[in-house]
Design a protein around this nucleic acid. Sequence first.
DNA 1: TATTGTTATACTCTATAACTATA
DNA 2: TATAGTTATAGAGTATAACAATA
Lengths: 148, 148
Amino acid sequence: MPELSRTLDPDDNAAVNSLRSAVMRLSRRLKHQRVDESLSPAEMSVLGTLARCGSATPGELARKEHVQPPSMTRIVALLEGKGLVVLEPHPEDRRQKVVRQTEQAEAMLEESRRKRNAWLAELAGQLDEDEWATLRAAAPVLEKLAHL
Amino acid sequence: MPELSRTLDPDDNAAVNSLRSAVMRLSRRLKHQRVDESLSPAEMSVLGTLARCGSATPGELARKEHVQPPSMTRIVALLEGKGLVVLEPHPEDRRQKVVRQTEQAEAMLEESRRKRNAWLAELAGQLDEDEWATLRAAAPVLEKLAHL
DNA sequence: TATTGTTATACTCTATAACTATA
DNA sequence: TATAGTTATAGAGTATAACAATA
């Protein structure tokens, strides 16, 4: 059993509510900053997972993405057709395959991050100095929170 | 033309990147905390928009949700069938209709917020005091950012 | 004649069930 | 016999085009 978490007081509850609302709204607007309209959200998500976790088999990808295996077969085939992943034989088990992202995919993801960062930076530029200093301090904590 | 925004320095760019990544990841996990599995994301989103903006015509909803009018006809019909919205005649234009959420919908949304807040609070309870103080200070700034 | 909303129809995405190949 | 992946098929969800009612 992991360490017990503290209990939050009423002020904290207000902050939690504010945090949830802001995160949901910001993410909705960030998602609209798409770099390639020809990729479905599912395809984009698989590329993101491959970038985070490296190569994976179709079965592993299906489990990570909470999608059934036949759906992943289709998604991978679409990505392969666009030159964003390649399928390689599994070194130890001839039933399985290994899905690996291409350099083209890495470049596209980097471009996507760049575009969303630019949009967010434009927004952040409209805050005053103190407000931005507060957010800059909070950024690493938010990242920790997101990975808990 | 609105006020010019400041330019961000390299440290700021790192913070922006961290912020974007954390917001996207947190929102993905928050969305999984669903209170009603029988509502599609589109239906949930329309209810959220109605809660924020009050009553609206189907056309206004289609524009706000970035969906075509026939799709909104269908979504509204589904919500109506579940008793979450009612359709009323438009007071000035007999071509239009007014979509209004019911008390049942408000209760469901409140329950949804409550569940997501509880999940987030549980996560926040695992941060130490200093980290949480930093986030509490940042919450209102994030909300301002999300509404810019 | 333009606009609001709906109906008819096709396309995309995902799921379940059945199949093939390998362990 | 069990597992990884694919193929076949059906069910949501959305879009485009054509239509009805009102401005």
